[in-house]
Amino acid sequence: MEHERAITAQEIAALTGGRLIAPGSGEVRVVAVAPIDRAGPDDLSFLASSKYLPYFQRSRAGVVLCKEEFAAAPGGPAVRIVVPDTHAALLAVLPVLYPPPVWQPGVHPTAVIGRGATWQDPVVIGPHVALGRDVHLGRNVRLGAGCALADGVQVGDDVELFPRVTVYSGTEIGNRVILHAGAVLGSDGFGYVPSTRGELPRKIPQVGRCLIGDDVEIGANTTVDRGSVDDTVIGPGTKIDNLVQVAHNVRIGARCLIAAMVGIAGSTHVGDDVFLAGQVGLADHLTIGSRVRVTVQGGVIGDIPDGAIVSGYPARSHREYLRAQAALYRLAKIVDDLEALVRRDRDA
C-alpha cells in the first residue's frame, strides 16, 4: 500500500509523547501499521498486553509502541517507544501514515435536487443523490452515491454520508456526524393498534422527529426510527455500530457506545456514557442510568440505576450472574451425588 509519507521513530515518539529507548534508532522509518504477528521491517506495531508477548518476541516490526512494563522485555524488535496507552498513541500516528483522502467539491450531474434545497459551499453531492424539497446542507457536507434525503431534512456542518444512506422527513442531523452505508434515519416506528375482532392491525401515524446530535457516528445498516408523538434523540458524541435498531421515542444520552446487533425498544431512555455490548436487548419504556454497562447478549427487562454492570437474561448484577453461572456448573456433580444416595438407599 502506498502512503503519502514515511515516518521515523523519532517523529513517532514526538507525536505520541513517548520515550524512544533504542539508542541511535531515531531514523528508523515505517510506512504502515500492522498487527504484531504480521508486521514487517517497514511497519509500526504495538504491544498492549502480555498475552501477545510470544508474538512480540518473534515479530519483525520496525518500531513497536509498548507500555512501560514491556520496555525491557527480552527478544522482539529493539526499536521501542514507551507510551502510557498504546491505543491512544496510535490515534496520534494513524492520521499521519494514512491521511484522509482529499475530496473535490461539486454536484454530480445525475443528482436530483428538489425545489428550495440549499447548501453552504463547499459540498459534495455524489452520483444519483436525491434531495427533497427544502433540504438544507451545512458547510463541508459530503453525500455519497445514491443517498436520499427527504423533504425538509436538515444537515449540519462537516457531515459525511456514505453511499445509500436514507434520511426521512422530520430528521435533523448535527455537526460532524458520520453515517455509514445503508443507514436509515427517521423511518416510521413500529406502532399499531392490535385487532380484537379479526381485523387488520391499525397503523399509528408516526409524527415525531429523529434528532441526531453533534459528533455522532452511526454504522452500516443501522436504523433509527422517528418518534411517534415524541422525538427519537441520539445524544452528542454517541457512537453506534452496524446493524443496530433504535425504536421510536428512544432517547440516548451523550458519549454512549452501542455495539452491533443491539435492539432498543420504544420509549426507553438511556443515560450518558452507557456501554451496550453486542446483541444486547432493551425492553420498552425502561430507564437506563448513566455509566451503565450491559455485557454481551444481556436482556434488560427492568430499569437499571446509574453505574451498574449487568449481565445475562434477565439482566442482573454482573457479580450475581457470575455466581449463578458457577452454581449452575456445579449442579451436575450435585445431581450425581444425589443419584448415588438414592441408589445406596434403594440397595440398603
Rank of each mutant, 00 (worst) to 15 (best):
T8E: 02
I125P: 04
L185C: 03
W103V: 11
G152E: 02
R80N: 04
L322C: 10
V184E: 00
D85P: 11
T232F: 06
I212H: 09
D151M: 02
A181I: 05
A283K: 00
L47I: 08
V292D: 01
A254Q: 14
A181W: 02
R58S: 12
I178L: 15
A220F: 03
I218K: 11
G312Y: 08
D37C: 01
E68V: 11
V83A: 08
Y98R: 05
T86P: 15
V107N: 05
E2S: 14
Y192D: 04
G289H: 15
R80V: 09
I173P: 00
E160D: 07
C210V: 08
V310T: 06
K239G: 12
I334N: 01
D347R: 14
A6H: 05
V229K: 00
I309S: 14
H3S: 14
P99N: 14
A34K: 13
R142C: 03
R197M: 10
D336I: 00
A183H: 08
E320K: 11
I81Y: 09
D303P: 04
A260I: 02
A48Y: 07
L47R: 13
I304E: 03
W103F: 14
S267N: 01
I12W: 00
C147E: 02
L97C: 08
G266K: 04
H285C: 06
G75L: 14
R293L: 07
Q120D: 11
G17I: 07
L137Q: 07
L15R: 08
S25G: 15
D85I: 12
L282F: 07
E27M: 03
P84L: 09
G17P: 09
D284A: 13
L90H: 13
A14L: 12
G289V: 13
E2M: 09
L65W: 05
V342G: 10
V193G: 00
S45K: 10
G299S: 03
Y329E: 15
S45G: 08
G253L: 10
I81C: 05
V64I: 15
I212F: 07
E2V: 09
W119S: 03
V229E: 12
I7P: 09
D134H: 11
I204E: 01
G266P: 10
V63E: 05
V167L: 04
A32E: 15
A332T: 08
D303I: 12
D158L: 08
Y52C: 12
L44V: 03
E2I: 15
D347I: 00
R226L: 02
R323N: 06
R139W: 06
P101Q: 11
P35G: 08
P236Y: 13
A13M: 09
V30H: 04
G114H: 14
R344Q: 11
S290H: 15
A183E: 10
T8W: 06
G146P: 13
A88Q: 14
L91E: 02
V155L: 07
I204M: 14
S25I: 00
G174C: 07
H136N: 13
P99I: 06
R80E: 06
L243N: 00
V184R: 04
G271Q: 13
L20Q: 07
L137K: 03
R5T: 10
T223L: 00
V335S: 04
G263C: 00
H3K: 14
S311E: 04
A340N: 05
V250R: 01
G235Q: 09
I252F: 04
L137N: 04
L257N: 10
R29K: 15
